[in-house]
């Protein structure tokens, strides 16, 4: 298992998990290889790993490594 920080809290993911796995688990939707939801809707989330944005196109190729800080953000009411 790999220990990371997800949205400010300790979290563990399976070995060899990638960002797309972590996003799918977090939002509770199945995602295709390109990161798009298989239900056809829009996802509306973005990911930063250690304060650097990981574009959706790279989610599948980006492994989640021990000790990383991952932020998964979305639109909320504001402004």
């Amino acid at each position: 298992m790999t220990a990371i920080t997800l949205n400010g809290r300790p979290h563990v993911v399976p070995e060899e998990a990638t960002v797309v796995d972590l996003v799918a688990e977090t939002v509770g939707r199945s995602l295709g290889p390109d990161g798009a939801p298989l239900d056809g809707g829009r996802l509306g989330v973005a990911v930063a790993v250690d304060a650097a944005v990981v574009p959706r196109s790279r989610w599948r190729r980006t492994p989640v490594a021990e000790g990383q800080a991952v932020e998964i953000i979305t639109a909320v009411q504001g402004g």
Binding site: N7, G8, T26, V27, G28, R42, G44, V45, A46, E71, I72, I73, T74, A75, V76, Q77, G78, G79
Partner: peptide, 16 residues
């Protein structure tokens, strides 16, 4: 306008 915040289950989808 919308703000961007950490994903919380059941929260973001509905506004979007």
């Amino acid at each position: 306008t919308v703000a961007l915040r950490r994903y919380a289950p059941g929260q973001g989808d509905s506004l979007f």
